[in-house]
Computed example of a mutant assay.
Amino acid sequence: MSTGINTDAGEKLRAYADRMERLMEEIDGLKDDLKDLKGQAKNDGFNVQALTRLIMIRRDKRRFEVEAELLNDLLLYAHATGIPLDVISPSVESGEEVVRSSKVDPAAESAPFD
């Protein structure tokens, strides 16, 4: 693929550069908006550092929920296909790690992950 001035590759490259430049300008604008918002919160007497930490915790919680859903789907698919899969997950009650297996005893009548 040649990247001359009047080639398709050259035009694509120019389009990518233009789009990237616009996105970077938007990011700079959003950073300015965030700075202004933090200033407003500070002027209203709020602790901006605590507010920022709260947002980070909320974002991590959403990421954790997405990962938990993905792991649940993985375990269900492994079980449905009969593929044994051992997973280490933290126990909510004790804080210790617990090994859970997708291997199911055919004689057992309960669900595999009770």
Rank of each mutant, 00 (worst) to 15 (best):
M20L: 10
D44P: 04
D60V: 07
V98I: 15
S94M: 00
I57V: 15
Y77F: 11
G29H: 05
D114Q: 13
D28H: 06
D73W: 04
Y16N: 11
D32S: 11
E65H: 03
R59M: 11
D32F: 05
K42S: 15
G4I: 01
I55S: 03
S101N: 01
L85H: 05
S101G: 02
L54E: 14
A15P: 00
K103N: 06
P90Y: 00
E65N: 07
V87R: 02
S89R: 12
A17D: 08
I5Y: 14
K42W: 08
P106M: 04
T7S: 15
G39Y: 06
N43D: 15
E69P: 00
Y16K: 08
R62L: 15
E69K: 10
V66Q: 11
V48E: 09
D32V: 08
P106A: 03
T7E: 08
D28P: 00
S110H: 05
D44L: 14
N47G: 07
D28K: 10
R14V: 03
I88S: 06
D36F: 09
R22V: 02
A111G: 08
S101Q: 00
Y77A: 11
L30W: 12
L85C: 12
M24N: 11
E67N: 08
R58G: 11
V98C: 03
K35A: 13
E26A: 10
E67W: 04
K31Q: 13
N72V: 03
D114V: 08
N47S: 14
L75A: 02
A107D: 13
G4P: 00
T81K: 05
P112M: 07
D28W: 02
L23T: 02
K12T: 07
L71I: 11
G45F: 02
L23W: 03
S89G: 00
V98Y: 03
Q49Y: 09
G10Q: 05
Y77N: 09
L51D: 00
P84M: 06
V66M: 09
G39C: 10
S101K: 00
Q40K: 14
I55K: 08
L51F: 00
A17R: 13
V98N: 07
D33H: 11
R63Q: 15
S2G: 07
D18G: 08
F46E: 15
Y77G: 01
V48T: 15
R62D: 15
E69Q: 12
G4R: 06
G39S: 10
F46H: 14
F113H: 13
L34V: 10
G45P: 01
M1Q: 07
V98T: 13
E65C: 01
G82N: 05
L51A: 02
E25C: 01
G82H: 05
P84V: 11
D18E: 15
L70A: 10
L85F: 15
L74R: 12
V92K: 09
D86W: 09
M24V: 03
L71Y: 04
Q49W: 05
V104A: 04
D105A: 03
S102R: 01
N47K: 12
M20H: 04
Q40V: 14
S2W: 02
A108H: 05
K42D: 13
M1W: 06
V104Y: 05
E96C: 03
P112C: 10
L74M: 14
F46C: 06
A9P: 01
A68D: 09
D44F: 11
A78M: 01
E97H: 10
G29E: 09
P90V: 04
D36V: 07
